[in-house]
Design a protein around this nucleic acid. Structure first.
Lengths: 346, 346
DNA sequence: TAAGCTTGTAAACGCGTGTTCACGAAAGAG
DNA sequence: CTCTTTCGTGAACACGCGTTTACAAGCTTA
């Protein structure tokens, strides 16, 4: 039932030229005179001819397709932020003439779950991929890079270390921590704790490091028992805080959370423990989650322009694809304190 | 730098068979004896051979790719729901061996904005597409269907009318309205208004119709001046309610909103007008937006299982693709009242 | 005027795979 | 034992396009 698909051979016949000439017109070769070009273009227009992408790829062109892979680790991908992230990638790619094959990886450790990634790279032969929520040294990603594929990653790597052949977007967590601690210090807090997040991602170690540096900078005492491990999900925040409350007799007056989701979970635990925010404990998050401004109390946090970040990441990836560059590239994204109601002067 | 890509010819050579046999093994033909099959499979495994999707498509196979098109009309696509929607489509498709090319249409009336859709269908030759946020009789969608493409649509069509050659997921808005009015009636409300949403989508007319039927069923008076047009965005809700407050001297005691986003906007207008919810006016929304439970006051609404809906839509689309069916198919999704704090007995 | 150069074009090849067709071998039927 | 059917397989063609090569015609230069 599908409209009979016309091909370049027929276009050539109709235009009275050879197929090569049609191809030259389509690919903007210079050695075809204006009259010929116009005639061919007219016929193409008239018959709604569109070249077959598969044939083009087979004949050696790029697929002009990038993959967007979201790894479900609770963090970014599962929550509200991803909406803007996805949109930003798609629209930026689209403006470069690229399309986006989106895929979700429920469990990076499950072979079956990762099969889709291989399919998409090896069988579909996409030009490159963006990974959100990937841990450091994720084996299947390293393998892709080894095989020469273009890969861009959000929030990966270790502070100060450079990873081979990839594009990385990192958050300026040390500046973020500095802002957070400065703000808390200005509210006269001296006893400050931290839930630092998943240490297998960039954000974990860099936030921890930033926290230590900022605390030292403002000459505040660091108490190791107030520094908690954790993940980036609401659930992990709830668990960490619940354990913390069971364990510690004396609490800090303020705490910095790995991100807003963690803060939501932690605040739920605090509420259940009868501890008031910000009355008894001030809380600062990271990311400016879409719910943060609606939360009770509205969450003070460090905002990130995720849209701009993903746009830049996408643009950089496409640039690397087109220039066949596999150079290591990292850029850092600014954080800005957004003061709301979850912190209070003491 | 990319790993030298091995092809079926080399596999054939290594296995000591012809390329046809390799192809037969890969495509699970029955007429190849077990020993031959095993040998070929072993060689394939050994050399990490993966068939080239473009070549397969060119040789007549399906692309096994569906498009997911989100039209920015304020409604579903721009807000939080879309996260689950997208995930549901991707994962369902993935489980059927299909991948999803995601695309955003900022403005359905802009030629440039729609070009991507044509590219993806005609040039990339995807097997079918899902459209979220499309108005009724959207020209470019009708054209795709005319050309024999498989199309699935959310919230399109008119109540009781069947549209040719497509798959439609509709909400059971008459049941939803019945539940809403029944609930309000049980709280002794008799004077009830409505913001009915975009009339170019299924939800607009069907909610209006459902509202009238429900009001009649419960023998409540319908006042035409309390039925407002509008869109599905927060902004449209704000505008509609602002105008309403300026215009009307006497207000209803309760209002049903086209959806939760509209309710958020309307409630902002109400607050600015000094009208308390639910003290002065009870409000019910539709959709159970992720923010609704956090809102102040928490919004009473009619919940929909969007994930299940999109999963079913995707599965149905793939079924149509594989069976070459272009039969009109519609299914209806249940709504369930979620009572929170935005309605009050009078 | 002859030799070189430019310009425009067509023919031919290659990309990697699915599928049809024909043919020989093996198996079954009479 | 001969004839027919089934099974297994390779050769050949098709899919639609990009690109290289070759060649002819028109032009310039010595």
């Amino acid at each position: 039932m599908k409209k009979t698909e016309i091909n370049s051979t027929e276009i050539a016949k109709l235009a009275g030229v050879s197929r090569s000439t049609v191809s030259r017109v389509i690919n903007n070769y210079s050695n075809v005179p204006p009259e010929t070009r116009d005639k061919v273009l007219r016929i193409i227009e008239e018959h709604h001819y569109v070249p077959n992408a598969s044939a083009q790829v087979l004949a050696g062109k790029r697929t002009r397709t990038i993959g967007l892979f979201m790894i479900e680790a609770g963090h970014v991908s599962s929550d509200i932020l991803s909406n803007m992230l996805i949109a930003s990638v798609i629209e930026n790619a689209s403006s470069h003439g690229y399309y986006v094959l989106t895929h979700i990886i429920r469990d990076a450790n499950n072979v079956e779950s990762v099969r889709g990634v291989k399919d998409i790279f090896y069988q579909r032969r996409i030009d490159g991929g963006i990974f959100i929520g990937a841990a450091n040294e994720e084996p299947f990603i390293e393998k892709l890079i080894e095989n020469g594929y273009q890969v861009a990653v959000v929030d990966q790597g270790l502070p100060g270390r450079s990873e081979p052949n990839r594009i990385i977007a990192n958050f300026d967590n040390s500046s973020g921590m500095m802002q957070a601690i400065e703000y808390l210090a200005s509210l006269r807090h001296r006893e400050i704790g931290l839930i630092c997040g998943d240490m297998r991602r960039y954000s974990g170690p860099s936030k921890l490091e930033g926290f230590r540096m900022a605390m030292e900078h403002y000459r505040l005492p660091i108490r190791e028992e107030w520094i908690l491990p954790g993940g980036f999900s609401e659930e992990s925040g709830y668990e960490a805080m619940t354990l913390f409350l069971e364990r510690e007799a004396t609490l800090p007056t303020a705490m910095v959370m790995a991100n807003d989701s963690v803060a939501f979970g932690a605040m739920r635990a605090l509420q259940e423990g009868g501890i008031e925010v910000p009355g008894d404990l001030s809380v600062i998050g990271f990311d400016d989650h879409a719910l943060s401004s609606r939360f009770q109390p509205a969450l003070t946090t460090l905002g990130i322009d995720f849209g701009a970040m993903m746009g830049k990441l996408t643009a950089t990836l496409i640039e690397h694809i087109e220039e066949r560059s596999t150079e290591f590239t990292r850029f850092t994204v600014d954080l800005n304190l957004i003061a709301r109601d979850s912190c209070k002067k003491i």
